[in-house]
Amino acid sequence: MVRREVVGAHYGLRDWLAQRATAVVMAVYTLLLLGAIAFMPRVDFVSWRALFAAPWMKMATLIFVVSVLLHAWVGVRNILMDYIKPNGLRLALYVVVLMVLVVYAGWAAQILWSV
């Protein structure tokens, strides 16, 4: 008898959970940002920059950006899995997407810490 267990590479549950955890983080951050803008006396450069100069906002934005990138990775990978059939092309696109996301992470950190 052949024992077959259809369990895959075990990243399914982890990705499923990560997609939901990052979604909650992003939803909360969205409300936070909208609230912060709503409480600005005037929406101008000075108050916009002051908002992002605050350490708590930097940290919140960093967590948001990391969530966006993880979430985007899982989502875009799923789209590529569904539509790009040739293995070589799909793997190449995975690498491109990963590199773009890593560059965005560095860029976002640079933006945040230049304020």
């Binding site: 450069f45 916009w48 920059r49 992002f52 966006v68 985007a72 989502g75 875009v76 789209i79 773009v100 965005y104 860029w107 976002a108 933006i111 230049s114 304020v115």
Partner: peptide, 20 residues
């Protein structure tokens, strides 16, 4: 979701511009 991914760079660029 695909649109948001494709326009992430635009959003970062806007954030950089408005904060600089």
């Amino acid at each position: 979701g695909a649109i948001l991914f494709l326009l992430l760079g635009l959003l970062l660029w806007l954030l950089q511009g408005t904060l600089s």
